[in-house]
Simulated assay, not measured.
Amino acid sequence: MTKVRFGIVGTNSITDKILDAAKQESRFELTAVYSRTAQRANEFAKKHNIPYTFTVLEEMASSPLIDAVYIASPNSLHAPQSILFMNHGKHVLCEKPLASNANEAKIMIEASERNNVTLMEAMKPTLTPNFFSIKNNIGKIGTIRRYFSCYCQYSSRYDQLKDGILLNAFDPKLSNGSVMDIGIYTIYPMVVLFGKPKKISATGIKLTTGVDGQGAINFEYDGMNATVLYSKIADSTLPTEIQGEEGTIISDRINIINRVTLKYRNGKEAEISAPNPRHEYYYEIAEFINLTETGKRESEINSHKNSLITLEIIDEIRKQLEIIYPADSIYN
């Protein structure tokens, strides 16, 4: 069995979850961690039994100790850090969103091609058994007429913002905001299932920091419509639905799909949830390692094309909401 030696960039709660999930993947070997300070690197290394630490990113990228890197740094750093590692021949599993904008994503994809290394966006729900259950059963509901998805989760950091404290979640310098953080969960599965929309119409609330607090987006496809709602300043319990002429597929949530139901127009109902015995983050790790082992540069589901289309959509949403990031001008 081949082991893939991973380095870690980003010592946050998402990384903790990834490393917890990685315990279920025997091919994952945790080798190194990077942090800007030696103290934080050592603390994280001790917590997760990581043998090597780095405080200079270039040294980690060029190190023969690792084969791949998981990047969970702020969004604005995804592109430059990923490109650095790929230019040193390292495979990259990069947290969502893949980049600050579509232009950065194109340059990342070019780096993957030039260096013949794997690049994959760590978008977890689209690689889970329940998403494949949705995908495999979608033909049973007839002609698709609407996709609707909602992910609204009030952020505790918003309370601090109202008190005048700016944290990373609402900082445009880090390419953050509602659509980048949680809105992407409603958009990416839509792209995987239906491709690129013909038309986008966005409304939302822009916060004092210059990022979006929430959004409501309508999409036009041939023969169908799509609507997504997302927010970091309000809660919702609405499900995700794919509505067809013969029935509707309902997912309880879109970021973590626990239950999937198929309701036919004639009143019949079927539970189509798939067994899901693994950690929610396991599937993206396994997919990524499969790609590196087989010499493939991209996933068929979390593909370069799907990641690029998603960022092109988000770029248009931000344009309509007049949300600009400093990163938008870096590679232009």
Rank of each mutant, 00 (worst) to 15 (best):
L19D: 00
H91M: 04
E59D: 08
Q39F: 11
H88G: 11
Y70A: 13
P51I: 15
L19H: 10
G89H: 08
S73W: 02
I8H: 01
S35Q: 09
H48E: 01
M86C: 08
Q24Y: 15
H91S: 04
T31W: 10
A32C: 07
N87T: 04
C94R: 00
E25M: 13
A21N: 11
A22P: 04
I50P: 11
A38P: 09
G89Y: 02
G10L: 07
Y52D: 14
A38N: 15
L19F: 02
S13W: 01
S35T: 06
G10E: 01
A21I: 08
L19K: 01
F28K: 13
Q24C: 13
Q81F: 04
E95F: 07
N101E: 08
T15N: 08
Y34S: 10
K46F: 00
P64W: 13
A45V: 03
A41Y: 12
V69D: 10
T37S: 15
L77Q: 09
M60G: 09
E29Y: 15
D67I: 14
T15Q: 13
D20I: 06
R40F: 09
L65N: 14
S63I: 03
H78V: 00
H91F: 04
I66G: 11
S82A: 05
F28L: 02
Y52Q: 15
N87F: 07
A61S: 08
N87P: 05
K90D: 00
N49M: 11
K17L: 10
M86P: 03
S63V: 12
Y52H: 15
K17V: 05
T15K: 10
D16L: 01
K23V: 11
L65E: 13
H91T: 03
L57W: 09
L93C: 02
A72F: 01
I50D: 04
T11W: 13
P80V: 06
I18Y: 06
L93A: 01
S73R: 11
L77C: 11
G89M: 11
I14N: 02
I18W: 05
K47A: 08
A61K: 01
N75C: 08
H91G: 02
S76N: 09
P74E: 07
A41G: 10
I83S: 00
A99V: 04
S13H: 07
V92M: 05
K90Q: 06
E58K: 12
A61I: 02
A41T: 04
H78A: 07
I66N: 10
S73Q: 10
I50E: 00
F85C: 07
V92I: 05
S26E: 13
L98G: 08
I18K: 13
V69A: 06
D16H: 05
P74W: 04
D67P: 09
G89D: 06
Y34M: 09
A68N: 02
L57E: 08
R27T: 15
Q39H: 15
N101T: 12
S63R: 12
S35W: 12
A38C: 14
T37D: 14
Q81Y: 04
Q24E: 12
K46A: 03
A45L: 01
A72M: 09
G10Q: 07
A32L: 06
L65A: 15
K46C: 05
E43R: 11
E43C: 14
I14C: 00
V33F: 03
L98W: 00
T53G: 12
A99N: 12
T37Q: 14
N49Y: 01
